[in-house]
C-alpha cells in the first residue's frame, strides 16, 4: 500500500476532538464492524450572533485504520464553527485534500467522516422535527469557494 502523508500520520497519532459529547444535538453513526470501520460523529449545535445555526462543538469516536482515524480527526477541525449548511457541504475530497491526500485504496473505504458529519446534522434536524438535508452527489470541493 502507498504510504500515508505526514498530515494523515499526525492526525492519526494525535487525533483532535476524540471523545463523546454528552447530550449531543446530533449523532451520526456510519460504517460497520464487518468492513472494519465504525465512526460516530457527535455535534453540539448553537446559534451565532446572526442567528445562524453553527457546529459549536464536534467530537468523534472511531474504530478503524489510520485513514479512518485521521479523517475523523480532520472533519472535526473542518466543521467546527461552520454553519450547518456549510458543514453539510464538506466532501470526502475536502477531507482528503486537507490531509494532503489519502492512498487511492483508502479514498472510499475509510473516508467516512463527511458521511458521518452529514448523518449527525440530519440526526439533529430530524430530532428537531425538521426535514433532513438531502445527500447530493459529491462534486468539487466546497472549500475552494
Amino acid at each position: 500500500m502507498e504510504n500515508y502523508s505526514k498530515k494523515v500520520m499526525e492526525n492519526f497519532m494525535k487525533p483532535k476532538n476524540m471523545g463523546e459529547i454528552k447530550d449531543a444535538s446530533g449523532v451520526g453513526k456510519v460504517g460497520n464492524p464487518v468492513c472494519g470501520d465504525i465512526m460516530w460523529i457527535y455535534i453540539m449545535v448553537s446559534k451565532d450572533k446572526s442567528g445562524n445555526e453553527i457546529v459549536k462543538d464536534i467530537k468523534f469516536k472511531t474504530l478503524g485504520c489510520a485513514a479512518a482515524i485521521a479523517t475523523s480527526s480532520m472533519i472535526t477541525e473542518l466543521a467546527k464553527g461552520k454553519t450547518l449548511a456549510d458543514a453539510y457541504k464538506i466532501t470526502k475530497a475536502d477531507v482528503a485534500k486537507a490531509l494532503d491526500g489519502l492512498p487511492p485504496i483508502k479514498m472510499h473505504c475509510s473516508n467516512l467522516a463527511s458521511d458521518g458529519l452529514k448523518a449527525a446534522i440530519n440526526d439533529y434536524l430530524v430530532k428537531q422535527g425538521r426535514k433532513p438535508m438531502e445527500h447530493t452527489k459529491e462534486a468539487g470541493s466546497s472549500l475552494r469557494s
Binding site: 487525533p15 453513526k29 465504525i38 469516536k61 472511531t62 474504530l63
Partner: peptide
C-alpha cells in the same frame, strides 16, 4: 488507547 476511541462493543 484504540479501545477508548471505539464507539461501541459489537
Amino acid at each position: 488507547k484504540l479501545r477508548q476511541m471505539c464507539p461501541y462493543k459489537y
